[in-house]
Design a protein around this nucleic acid. Structure first.
Length: 495
RNA sequence: GGCCCCAUGGUCAAGCGGUUAAGACGCUGCCCUCUCACGGCAGAAUCAGGAGUUCGAUUCUCCUUGGGGCUACCA
């Protein structure tokens, strides 16, 4: 295969959408699988939709996800937008003169024409066509204006656009790697605007010119581009260029089988990151929506994904974004991460919940880490740690249910509490070693064992019948908290 | 409405003419265990419908139905 060059070409209209990440990911996986280049191009031809800071966000989200940009738009070490590569500029608004040149060429060759129709006229004819039950499309009013006349009108200051001049009733065929051959008749296509009245190209012109000039070998993009692909193919033919290979990816849907949208909650990569998803988890899961590995193993690192990826195994069907499965994948990565990593990721959440302070981070890092380890295996997202460690930070012991009270009212409970007090009285503070032997000592001392030993202690310390290992709870709580909670329980529930 | 794409359990999906129709998430039960979680085992659950083609269709063709997309001087 020729040197593979693919591009991810988002519009800088905000944050990177989860569907966009998937598209970028498949581009990246394909490129890396073939030792090719992954290029980031910014398609900012719609000035009305430009959002400040969007490019930085896009790049940061890609980097976070582990997608490395080989060429095109990226950020330098100071976080400033920069462009690398020999096919630049890679930001379309900086390529206006290039598009201009190719538009002129198209017009000269008779594949495009100037159009002076006003917005009002366009709206009107569409309205009429709709009423008549016709397909709303441009009626060709300006199709036959001569170049000379058009130029004169332009010189007179008339506003204009340039439209694609599509032949009538011609089948345009093209091949899509995952979908096979696709044929669309030009009668079902519109004389698409190529150059807008503000001098900016539309997507259709810019994408063709840029993909050609940047030597893109494979256009991998969302399914929503499928119906306009023939226009692009026609343009390649008009220019006399060789078209790239096409891959139109199935859509990522929400539970209602609609395109994933903001109304359903998190949709941007930034949202998922903030919710405590690890990049490996999100990437791994996303790879699985619309593609499947050959084997049964679904937990795959980026390198493994690169190694296994092929368009042959990309599905044609839109897939629903399944948060449950994402959580499962993510929990896998949380469990297999080092406790240091998860601790560092958890600290901001713990601080936000006012469970810890900067001073704690500085002075009691090991204690924080111990707490994280205690709940690490049960987390789906790092953010969940806030709920999981809540038990350690309550002043009062709140009983979760009547069953807890039942346990606390067991007849051996006073003996148990007394033994704990005595045992704790002998030491300054708990260390991990002490904790791991603690329950055994109590057992020896009181003769109480098993459920009867653990459950009342758990109930008294957490107000709960479930939770992490009791030994860990003891350590995280520390001597004073243990004594306080026992006392609290005695005073409030056992009198 | 027109055009295009798509169709295997609730979800992601394997399958590419002959299979007891994989696997994963979720769900249920059991085991492990102080409990939860992890882990292990087991279970329920799928080829949208109808015509063809064929000795034989989940698989190929057509129709119906359903879903999605496009139909802008947005991408």
């Amino acid at each position: 295969m020729d040197d593979v060059r693919v591009r991810f070409a988002p519009s800088p209209t905000g944050y990177l959408h989860i569907g966009g990440l998937r598209t970028a990911l498949y581009n990246y996986l394909f490129a890396k699988h073939n030792n090719g280049k992954f290029i980031l191009r910014i398609e900012d031809t719609d000035r009305t939709r430009f959002v400040e800071g969007a490019i930085e966000n896009l790049v940061n989200s890609l980097k976070w996800a582990g997608i490395e940009i080989d060429e095109g738009v990226t950020l330098d070490e100071n976080g400033q937008i920069t462009q690398v590569g020999e096919y630049g500029p890679y930001i379309q608004s900086e390529r206006l003169d290039i598009y201009r040149k190719y538009i002129d060429e198209l017009i000269e060759r008779g594949y495009a024409y100037y159009c002076f129709c006003t917005k009002e006229r366009l709206d009107k004819i569409r309205e009429e066509q709709k009423i008549k039950g016709l397909v709303p499309k441009y009626d060709g009013f300006c199709r036959n204006i001569s170049i000379e006349e058009a130029k004169k009108r332009i010189a007179d200051g008339e506003e204009y656009v340039v439209r694609l001049k599509l032949p009538q009733n011609v089948d345009i065929k093209f091949h899509d790697i995952v979908r096979g051959d696709i044929v669309i008749n030009t009668n079902d296509l519109d004389d698409q605007v190529l150059l807008k009245s503000d001098g900016f190209p539309t997507y259709h012109l810019a994408v063709v010119v840029d993909d050609h000039l940047m030597n893109i070998t494979h256009v991998v993009r969302g399914e929503e581009w499928l119906p306009s692909a023939p226009k692009h193919v026609f343009l390649y033919q008009a220019f006399g260029w060789e078209a790239p290979e096409y891959v139109h990816l199935p859509t990522v849907l929400n539970k209602d089988r609609k395109k994933l949208s903001k109304r359903q909650g998190d949709v941007s990569v930034e949202d998922f990151r903030a919710s405590g998803y690890l990049p490996e988890g999100l990437v791994n899961y996303l790879a699985l929506v619309g593609w499947s590995p050959e084997g049964n193993e679904e937990i795959l690192s980026m390198d493994e994904l690169i190694n296994e990826f092929s368009f042959e195994r990309v599905s044609k069907t839109g897939g629903i974004f399944d948060k449950d499965k994402l959580n499962w994948v993510n929990s896998h990565y949380i469990r297999s991460s080092s406790s240091e990593r998860i601790t560092d990721l958890a600290i901001p959440y713990l601080k936000e919940a006012n469970y810890i302070t900067d001073e704690d981070v500085f002075k009691r890092y090991d204690w924080i880490k111990a707490m994280v380890v205690t709940v690490q295996e049960s987390l789906s997202t790092v953010k969940e740690i806030v709920d999981k460690v809540e038990i350690f930070f309550k002043d009062k012991v709140e009983l979760e249910s009547d069953e807890v009270l039942e346990v606390l009212k067991g007849e051996q409970v006073p003996t148990l509490f007394e033994a704990i007090r005595e045992e704790l009285g002998e030491i300054e503070e708990l260390d991990e070693e002490f904790c791991s032997g603690f329950m055994k000592k109590i057992q020896k001392k009181t003769g109480i064992k098993g459920k009867n030993l653990y459950m009342p202690v758990r109930a008294a310390l957490t107000g709960n019948l479930h939770g992490p290992e009791l030994v860990n709870i003891l350590y995280v709580l520390g001597k004073q908290n243990i004594l306080k909670r026992i006392e609290y329980v005695e005073n409030n529930y056992l009198k």
